[in-house]
Amino acid sequence: MNGAEHDFGSFVAARATSLLRVAYLACGDQTEAEDLLQTALERTYRNWHRVRHDSPEPYVRRVIINAAISRARRRAILNIIPMHSPPETSAREKDSDLVHVLMNALRALPPRQRAVIVLRYWEDLTETQTAEVLGCAVGTVKSQASKALAKLRTALGRDIMEGACDNAQA
């Protein structure tokens, strides 16, 4: 194994779990997230000679997000509905229900808005960094985040209130 391959292997070993979470949040399905990550790592490996000198993680994130958006668009054009599975978690049942509600709300967002939410609030990127990853203007990130947060507030408020009502009636 040469130095470049070793560097790539070390990068994957160190960052794969975090990148898989980004992929899962971007698409909402564990199997598809694994496929997205594999695609991103394959593209990164092919460009490793260029990518490794900079920070490779933003490059991989961008590939993941772009691939997730492209797949969502293709599905919309072909009218394909993916099978979603909730993340495996050891959280208490109540926490698990909240995670399920949140993931459903994230899945309901358009792909670009979901990407902004994942990058800004899960990956804790700045607006400028998010714009760089998505290849858009900072103003676009701001407007997409605002629209997405409004949709999430509406969806989460409704779902959490319905859950509370269901529990009160039981």
Rank of each mutant, 00 (worst) to 15 (best):
L41T: 07
L37A: 02
A23F: 06
Q38H: 05
R43G: 06
W48Y: 03
T17R: 11
L37S: 02
L36N: 01
L37M: 07
A13L: 14
T31P: 01
D29I: 10
A33R: 11
R50C: 13
E32V: 14
S18N: 04
E34K: 07
H49C: 00
A26K: 05
F11L: 11
Y45P: 01
L19M: 05
E32D: 11
T31C: 12
G28N: 01
D35A: 05
A13I: 09
A23E: 06
Y45S: 06
A26T: 00
T31D: 15
Q30S: 15
V12L: 13
L41N: 09
R43P: 00
G9T: 14
F8I: 07
E32M: 08
F11N: 04
F11W: 08
T17C: 00
D35Q: 04
G28Q: 02
R50L: 15
A23L: 05
R50K: 12
L20A: 06
R15M: 09
T44V: 08
A16S: 14
V51P: 11
Y45R: 08
G28W: 08
D29H: 12
E32K: 13
T39E: 15
S10A: 11
E34H: 03
F8M: 07
R21A: 12
G9Q: 15
A16P: 05
V51C: 07
H49V: 07
R21G: 06
Y24S: 01
D29N: 15
W48E: 03
W48L: 05
R50H: 09
Y24M: 10
V12A: 15
Y24V: 01
T17A: 08
F8G: 01
W48R: 03
V12P: 13
C27W: 04
D29A: 15
S18H: 12
L36A: 02
L20Q: 13
S18F: 10
A14W: 06
A14E: 11
L36K: 00
E34I: 02
A33F: 09
L25R: 08
S10W: 06
E32C: 01
Q38N: 05
